[in-house]
Structures are given as structure tokens and as C-alpha cells.
Amino acid sequence: HFTSQQLQELEATFQRNRYPDMSTREEIAVWTNLTEARVRVWFKNRRAKWR
């Protein structure tokens, strides 16, 4: 589960860029205190939901 702060950060990034690269995902991981893998999976799932 994600905190509302984490989701806000993830959503804001998603609005700007639906396909963040590795370095962007790592930055998000640092800001949100999540692993890069969790961030990558979140984006994958979010893109699926967005379609």
C-alpha cells in the first residue's frame, strides 16, 4: 500500500511522463522512500489502468 503522499508524487510524475526511465524511477524511489522496482510496477499498472 502507498501513502497519499507517495501516490501524489507518483501521479504528478505520471501526468508529466508515462514512461519514466531508470534514473527518473530511481529519483522517484528516493523521494517516495520506495524501491525502484515498486515504482516500476506502479507505473506499469498505472499505464494499464490509464488505457
Score class of each variant (00 low, 15 high):
1 H>S: 12
2 F>E: 03
2 F>L: 14
2 F>S: 02
2 F>Q: 03
3 T>F: 04
3 T>H: 05
3 T>V: 03
3 T>N: 08
3 T>P: 02
4 S>A: 13
4 S>D: 12
5 Q>S: 11
5 Q>Y: 13
5 Q>C: 10
5 Q>V: 10
6 Q>H: 04
6 Q>K: 04
6 Q>N: 04
7 L>V: 09
7 L>D: 05
7 L>F: 06
7 L>I: 12
7 L>K: 08
7 L>A: 06
7 L>H: 07
8 Q>L: 12
8 Q>T: 10
8 Q>E: 13
8 Q>K: 14
8 Q>G: 08
8 Q>N: 10
9 E>G: 10
9 E>K: 15
9 E>Y: 15
10 L>M: 06
10 L>K: 00
10 L>P: 00
10 L>G: 00
11 E>A: 02
12 A>V: 08
12 A>G: 07
12 A>Y: 09
12 A>C: 08
12 A>Q: 10
13 T>W: 15
13 T>E: 15
13 T>S: 14
14 F>K: 01
14 F>R: 01
14 F>M: 05
14 F>L: 01
15 Q>W: 08
15 Q>R: 10
15 Q>F: 06
15 Q>D: 07
16 R>E: 10
16 R>W: 10
17 N>G: 05
17 N>Q: 06
17 N>V: 09
17 N>P: 01
17 N>W: 08
18 R>F: 06
18 R>A: 08
18 R>M: 14
18 R>H: 14
18 R>Q: 13
19 Y>M: 04
19 Y>C: 11
19 Y>I: 04
19 Y>N: 07
20 P>N: 00
20 P>G: 02
20 P>T: 00
20 P>K: 03
20 P>Y: 04
21 D>M: 05
21 D>P: 06
21 D>I: 04
22 M>A: 11
22 M>Q: 13
22 M>V: 09
22 M>D: 05
22 M>H: 11
22 M>F: 13
23 S>C: 08
23 S>F: 08
23 S>L: 11
23 S>Y: 10
23 S>P: 10
23 S>M: 12
23 S>W: 07
24 T>Y: 07
24 T>K: 07
24 T>L: 12
24 T>F: 08
24 T>I: 08
24 T>H: 08
25 R>F: 07
26 E>H: 13
26 E>M: 15
27 E>D: 08
27 E>M: 12
27 E>H: 10
28 I>H: 00
28 I>C: 03
28 I>E: 01
28 I>M: 03
28 I>V: 08
29 A>D: 02
29 A>Q: 02
29 A>F: 03
30 V>A: 14
30 V>I: 14
30 V>G: 10
31 W>K: 15
32 T>W: 08
32 T>L: 15
32 T>N: 08
33 N>G: 15
33 N>S: 08
33 N>T: 05
33 N>L: 06
33 N>C: 07
33 N>R: 07
33 N>A: 07
34 L>T: 14
34 L>A: 08
34 L>P: 00
35 T>H: 04
35 T>L: 04
35 T>F: 04
35 T>D: 08
35 T>C: 05
35 T>N: 06
36 E>L: 05
36 E>H: 03
36 E>C: 02
36 E>N: 03
36 E>R: 01
36 E>D: 01
37 A>Q: 14
37 A>Y: 12
37 A>I: 12
37 A>F: 13
37 A>H: 11
38 R>E: 15
38 R>Q: 15
38 R>A: 14
38 R>H: 11
39 V>E: 00
39 V>K: 00
39 V>N: 00
40 R>Y: 08
40 R>W: 06
41 V>Q: 14
41 V>F: 11
41 V>H: 10
42 W>K: 00
42 W>M: 01
42 W>G: 00
42 W>R: 00
43 F>Q: 00
43 F>C: 03
43 F>I: 01
44 K>H: 10
44 K>I: 15
44 K>E: 10
45 N>Q: 14
45 N>V: 10
45 N>S: 07
45 N>A: 14
46 R>Y: 02
46 R>C: 02
46 R>K: 05
46 R>E: 07
46 R>F: 04
46 R>V: 03
47 R>I: 06
47 R>C: 03
47 R>N: 06
48 A>S: 08
48 A>V: 10
48 A>E: 12
48 A>L: 08
48 A>M: 07
49 K>I: 15
49 K>M: 10
49 K>F: 10
50 W>P: 05
51 R>M: 13
